[in-house]
């Protein structure tokens, strides 16, 4: 595969966000990789990109308009860089999902979202129906826009030598958008979709108080993120953004512990790619046990504190 591929970096101007190293790994399978770093005073991120294994060149678009990394401004930068590439690759993160389709439509080309496997330069595997089916798709367009699922491609390493960094001038023609504020949650806990361990509570917890009283000490012990089933969210035990499932967050941690979760289809869709699944539920017939590697049929109000204490 000898095409030129453009990776649009996700970064915070100072350095790269980890998703970028995964996107570069996917792009390497398609051809020679150029990385676009679009931001304001983003020399640090450009340098980090230049030192990623497999990167042949870095384009640095540095302009005040790019301060918020808004879809409108970043799209203008990608359009300035796009000439000559056969594929434009974004990480499938909030950043990549926001920008990629805007670029694709401006270039009148199709986008393939959430690629988990590259079959050849035109053919890709991607999950549909929240991962309940895998589609192999192909596109004959001369240019393709892809977003790649970061968990499906191992990050490239950093190296000592650096690829050349070129400055990229950008003409901004898109609508102006003002970034009013950005608040990143200052939580001691890891983020749900990136956590190595996820502890999830369901309706079985019985109340918001018990949900927090039982799950938080366990999550603290395991340095885990806390998730919730839709039933638990609907019952008000946990906020909406904790929901794991087809209409919530899709997670695939090393260890997933489902507590008092029955295992409705739409919940399973959000967690069944986890490496190891543990279920604790008093109902031996709960569907969650069909996907659990280790099932414990027990009263969670006894089992969970015991587990927390003995870990």
């Amino acid at each position: 595969m000898g095409h030129s591929v453009l990776v649009v970096a996700e970064h915070n101007d100072e350095t790269l966000v980890s998703s970028t190293a995964h996107a570069i790994a996917a792009a390497k399978q398609l051809g020679e990789v150029t990385v676009l770093v679009a931001g304001t005073h983003c020399g640090g991120a450009a340098q980090a990109a230049a030192q990623c294994d497999g990167v042949a060149k870095v384009l640095q678009a540095d302009a005040p308009e790019l301060a918020g990394h808004t879809a409108e401004a970043v799209t203008d930068a990608v359009l300035a860089a796009a000439q000559g590439f056969r594929a434009i690759v974004f990480p499938s993160t909030a950043f990549g999902k926001n920008v990629a389709p805007r670029v694709a439509a401006k270039l009148d080309c199709a986008q393939i979202s959430d690629v988990i496997r590259i079959v050849d330069e035109k053919t890709f595997v991607r999950p549909i129906y929240a991962g309940n089916a895998l589609a192999t798709v192909t596109c004959d367009d001369q240019l393709l826009v892809l977003t790649v699922r970061t968990t499906a491609f191992d990050a490239v390493a950093q190296r000592d030598e650096a690829a050349p960094i070129e400055s990229l001038p950008v003409t901004f023609t898109g609508p102006k958008v003002e970034l009013v504020s950005r608040e990143l949650t200052q939580s001691e806990r890891p983020e749900l979709t990136a956590a190595r361990v996820v502890v999830t509570g369901g309706r079985g917890l019985g109340s918001a108080e018990q949900f927090h009283a039982l799950l938080e000490p366990l999550a603290d012990k395991l340095n885990a993120a806390i998730g919730a089933s839709r039933a638990a969210v609907d019952a008000g035990y946990a906020p909406n953004d904790w929901q794991v499932g087809q209409t919530g967050k899709i997670v695939a941690p090393e260890l997933y512990i489902a507590i008092g979760v029955s295992g409705a289809i739409q919940h399973l869709a959000g967690m069944k790619d986890s490496k190891v699944i543990v279920a604790i539920n008093k109902d031996p017939d709960a569907p969650i046990f069909q996907v659990a590697d280790y099932g414990l049929v027990a009263d969670l109000f006894q089992a969970v504190p015991e587990l927390t204490q003995k870990l």
Binding site: L134, T136, V137, C139, F289, D293, G295, L296, L307, K310
Partner: peptide
């Protein structure tokens, strides 16, 4: 613009085991 060549089920998870108590877990 995109053609679907095939749609398949994802690899099935193997049926797990039940453990007797917290210690075994």
């Amino acid at each position: 613009r995109i053609r679907t060549l095939k749609v398949e089920e994802p690899p099935k998870r193997q049926g797990g085991v039940k453990v007797a108590d917290v210690d075994e877990l």
